[in-house]
Write a protein that binds this DNA or RNA. Structure first.
Lengths: 140, 140
DNA sequence: GTTCGTGCAAACGGTTTGCAACAAT
DNA sequence: ATTGTTGCAAACCGTTTGCACGAAC
């Protein structure tokens, strides 16, 4: 990791109120800048390449911490595991039935109406979850 | 359970291609006619009241079977457990942040546009997932 | 008598927790 | 000194699986 990138990550963590330990910076280096929607275990695998000493517990603690601080959102889109998404602005998700891969869908790509009007509900957040397969035909 | 209700359930299972064992009928009695969105364990608790002998394995097997036959849909809306929904037509869901309770939102209550137009995606299914709290104010 | 369904208990996999060592302030 | 962070291992919990018994055709 270049020193300037490291510095940027450290500042980002500090701005979020997180003390920038070496482990946290290493985790941030991967997870705050990916479109993979990784599971905790995937984060562990990747971070271990550059930081072989991290324990699973630290990964779990850190991801939870990042989520609480708004650096990440945790998503439950499939059975058996939570995935993390560094894109914290509202957006939708596509889940590939065949592979389980998760892909962001831009907020503007789907018009959703009337959600705020639901009676008896104080809406905090909403998203469209689309399931299907990548079409072999008109792949761009 | 009244005999006529039992007969209706048996026919419903047979129509779906499921052999109507006593256990399956007891499970169907609860899970095909609830708005609870129960977990497997909740189903076990409820079914045991009328059928104390059922094993957890049978519950899991049966719920999976029902889902495969289209009698149920399985949903993953929160971490750590799958819930089952006998309403198999398209609809949306609201998840209460405070209690975890899940509530159906009618399909027509939210207009969703353009989902079928997503490039490179063969859409099988989609839903809006709304998260928030039940508003104390205008509860009807 | 072969297939299907059930119950039990053990296994499994993702996640959490308790605790002791250590680092930062 | 106090507080926060890490690593390890064990615990936890929802779910799955292997297997033997029993029921249904």
């Amino acid at each position: 990791m270049q020193p300037d990138r490291q510095q940027i990550l450290i500042e980002r963590l500090e701005r979020a109120g997180v003390r920038p330990s070496a482990q946290r910076v290493a985790i941030a280096d991967y997870v705050l800048d990916t479109e993979d929607h990784p599971t905790a275990d995937r984060v562990w695998q990747v971070v271990r390449e550059s930081f072989p000493m991290v324990s699973r517990a630290t990964i779990y603690n850190t991801l939870q911490l990042f989520a609480e601080c708004g650096l990440l959102k945790s998503l439950v889109l499939a059975e058996g595991s939570v995935v993390y998404d560094p894109k914290v602005e509202p957006h939708h998700h596509f889940v590939d039935d065949a592979t389980g891969a998760i892909q962001d869908i831009p907020w503007q790509a789907i018009r959703v109406g009337k959600v705020e009007d639901l009676p008896g509900i104080e809406v905090r957040d909403y998203m469209v979850v689309v399931r299907g397969t990548r079409s072999t035909a008109k792949r761009r």
